[in-house]
């Protein structure tokens, strides 16, 4: 986190960096690296008339593919949204108090828990899915929203704990102590004081958990055997299997599945940068 804030340079206004060769080179890099995503949008906007020759620019854009995609995959988009929001709630409800406890309470065993949290990152998803499936069958959680929400929360929880804890160690204990003296119990103090102070870190953790869950494919694929709960990632996967000829609609679906990432990048740029550096290094 510090890495990011420190790069926010406050230079005098007259000393702004100039356009030069570097800027041109940077734009060239941008064009090359983002070309696949541009091409996705481009195909989605062009009609199928000329199958062999997709033109470089969508000169006559059509929304036909999007309406096809929406009519077949609209439900999956809603499912993804529901599951991802649910996962964010579960994840933050678990991570925020835990991060606070690990940052401030100095309990015996803190070290072990933090160690364990870090180590979860090495557990492959397929191993989790493999064992979870059997357990979910017994608990009647296969093909349920609740089951997928809880599984997806695991994608964001270790990250969120690490990120929030890194932030919460810097909250002065006196702030909380003061309210305890006023008679609030520790939990009330946590809700009224610690959570508002940690707003930015909570937003970052929430955004990333949302994105992890939205992108989840493995749990969605393995913990569902019917179409009852079918997020957009599985929707696209099946779509590609069934309609490889209808690339326009596939790409339109892909565009819609990519929208949250793009929105996130535009709306919450500073949180994204903070999340990537904070979650992995700290």
């Amino acid at each position: 986190m510090t890495a990011v804030s420190r790069t926010r340079r406050n230079r005098p206004a007259d000393n702004r960096p100039r356009w030069n060769g570097n800027t041109i080179a940077a734009l060239a890099i941008l064009i090359v690296l983002l070309f696949p995503l541009y091409w996705m949008v481009n195909i989605a906007l062009q009609s199928d008339r000329s199958l062999a020759g997709t033109t470089w620019l969508p000169t006559a854009p059509t929304w036909a593919h999007f309406s096809t995609a929406l009519s077949t995959e609209g439900g999956s988009l809603l499912t993804s949204l529901t599951v991802a929001l649910g996962a964010v709630v579960v994840c933050l409800a678990l991570a925020a108090p835990a991060a606070y406890g690990l940052a401030q309470f100095k309990l015996r065993g803190t070290r072990v828990v933090v160690f364990g949290t870090l180590i979860t990152q090495m557990v492959p998803g397929i191993v989790i899915a493999n064992a979870l499936y059997g357990a979910y069958v017994d608990l009647h959680l296969v093909n349920s929203y609740l089951g997928l929400i809880f599984a997806d929360a695991s994608l964001g929880l270790p990250f969120s704990i690490v990120l929030l804890r890194a932030f919460m160690v810097s909250i002065p204990a006196e702030v909380v102590e003061a309210s305890l003296v006023d008679g609030a119990n520790r939990f009330v103090a946590f809700v009224r004081i610690v959570l508002p102070m940690s707003r930015n870190a909570l937003i970052t953790a929430g955004l990333f958990t949302f994105l992890f869950s939205w992108s989840d494919f493995m749990f969605a694929l393995t913990l569902n055997t019917t179409d009852n709960v079918k997020p957009i990632t599985v929707g696209i996967y099946e779509f590609v299997g069934a309609h490889v000829s209808d690339w326009g609609a596939v790409m339109a679906t892909a565009v819609m599945a990519a929208v949250p990432a793009a929105v996130l990048l535009v709306m919450a740029q500073k949180y994204v940068a903070a999340g990537i550096t904070g979650g992995s290094i700290k």
């Binding site: 996967y237 990519a258 990048l265």
Partner: peptide, 23 residues
């Protein structure tokens, strides 16, 4: 530019895979 370059990493992997399949 640095921020926008993050997009390929933020997009769901299944989406990237499908796009590249076409490319």
């Amino acid at each position: 530019v640095r921020a926008v370059l993050l997009l390929p990493w933020l997009v769901p992997m299944v989406v990237s895979a499908v796009v590249w399949r076409k490319l």
